[in-house]
């Protein structure tokens, strides 16, 4: 059974993905591969250069963040 279901938390919401193994695949799945987006997995920054190598595992807590108005 290769088609594993990945259960992770993305921005605080529990989600299930099929065919998503890496950070880069998650971003593509969410339509965020072309916009500036910083990624943390389990509170550790994953730089953009490592998005395609970084493997996601069940239970990972992923934060996808951007810049918003602030003071």
């Amino acid at each position: 059974m290769e088609q594993l279901q990945l259960q992770i938390q993305v921005n605080g919401e529990a989600r299930e993905y099929i065919g998503v193994h890496t950070v880069a695949q998650l971003l593509a799945h969410l339509g965020h591969d072309a916009v500036p987006c910083a990624v943390e997995v389990n509170q550790q920054l994953v730089p953009k250069a490592k998005h395609s190598q970084h493997q996601l595992h069940g239970g990972d807590r992923v934060e996808l963040v951007t810049l918003v108005g602030g003071g």
Binding site: H32, L64, V65, V68, G69
Partner: peptide, 28 residues
């Protein structure tokens, strides 16, 4: 100045800050 916040992944709407500003002329 700007803040760092979660992407709104599941209820996308409106223009983002990044689209609205002449970022090449400003230091963030």
């Amino acid at each position: 100045t700007v803040a760092v916040r979660r992407e709104r992944l599941f209820d996308k709407d409106g223009r983002s800050l990044l689209d609205a500003l002449p970022l090449d002329q400003l230091t963030i």
